[in-house]
Design a protein around this nucleic acid. Structure first.
Lengths: 217, 217
DNA sequence: GTCTATACATTGATAGAC
DNA sequence: GTCTATCAATGTATAGAC
């Protein structure tokens, strides 16, 4: 019976080894998907032998499972922070900024998630139908209140959130395409430039405007 | 020597069989990525035997290669149509609409592309650095002209295009997540709703506004 | 705990009967 | 053209020495 099946306490050393394996596995799974990854690839990345990997985890599946469950918690975190008490446009723009920071700082996690969704979310569909839907419904409800109160323009709150998810994920998942297209000298600042652009994009969408029948000039 | 290596003319029947194989392969590759897909899966999907697949194509790699090269042409098509002579905001919104239609009508192609990019674009990096970069530079140039002429607001044209790519791809690639979040009764209209939302999003971003030091009221 | 050796299943591709 | 049989390589997982 391997370490991972035991419920006895795990030493610091063991935890560190498991973390090394998980780091390597994240690297591989995020790039090749579950089926496209092999324990050999993970072992080489972690500088360990294949049986040694399987000493700490019962199976390839178990490693993947653990990565996904770790991910889901952190992935919902930014959305949770949207508060009905804050200034609406600030709340939305801060959410965009937090998501963009996650794309910048945790691109592998982003790609792991993207791979899972692309495959039809076989392992996390329950989490999408449960916690994610529940949380999203709460936040669209807040946005709808802001709209009713005339604090922001009337927009479809679901598609607003989808567009935020889409764009921020894109900067992690499609990074290679972005780097291929923009000039090298601008590559360093791509996340700052993106943040500036997105702040303007969503501010202009949401800030209440007076509809004029005739232009001013 | 198999059929696919021959340069002799290919009969209608043969072309049809190859198309059946390509359709099945698109289904599999788009979901599992290249390494995650097997010829057996493709064979079952196509209702053919494995050796029969390999009669028409020399290898698994060749099938994948053909799908990707078919894809690249059609994938750049909508961007090409942006014209410097049109009305700027109309041109951008039509581009968004065309891309959204492709996400709706060719979701598998979208996912095939997403899988390739997620893996670091090993097979199409040259196309990203070449044709895609060239075309994108042309179009950002047009957008910059519109900005100089005061026809639209000043925005970063690259990030404008990235955001369009991101959102429209999202409706294909992350469809399972979208369906998990929105109500069933709204699922049918999700592409129409998205189009309406995006039209407003980009119109508000781009339409020239008078910057007032003081509000009007 | 870590390694070598190996069992067993899957997979890409070929040979050869029909 | 299509099938059955099969091979070589790869991949998951285990056994057992150290």
């Amino acid at each position: 019976m391997s370490r991972s099946s035991s419920t006895k306490k795990i030493t610091r050393i063991q935890r560190e080894k498991m973390q090394i394996i998980l780091d390597a596995a994240l690297d591989i799974f995020s790039k090749h998907g579950f089926r496209g990854s092999t324990i050999d690839m993970i072992a080489e990345k972690a500088s360990l032998s294949k049986p040694n990997i399987l000493y700490y985890f019962d199976s390839k599946d178990e490693i993947h499972e653990m990565l996904l469950s770790n991910l889901l918690e952190t992935w919902l975190e930014p959305l949770k922070k949207i508060s009905p008490k804050g200034e609406p446009i600030t709340e939305i723009c801060c959410y965009v900024e937090r998501k963009l920071e996650m794309a910048r700082d945790y691109p592998k996690e982003s790609r792991l998630f993207a791979n899972e969704i692309l495959q039809g979310a076989p392992r996390i569909l329950h989490a999408l139908n449960g916690p994610l839907k529940k949380l999203t419904d709460e936040k669209t409800s807040i946005i709808n209140t802001w709209i009713s109160d005339g604090k922001i323009n009337s927009v479809d709150p679901y598609h607003l959130i989808f567009s935020i998810w889409a764009i921020t994920q894109h900067y992690a998942d499609f990074d290679v395409q972005i780097l291929a297209v923009i000039e090298k000298k601008n590559a360093q600042n791509r996340f700052d430039d993106a943040n500036k652009f997105l702040k303007e994009l969503f501010t202009r969408l949401l800030e209440p405007t007076i509809k004029l029948k005739e232009p001013l000039w």
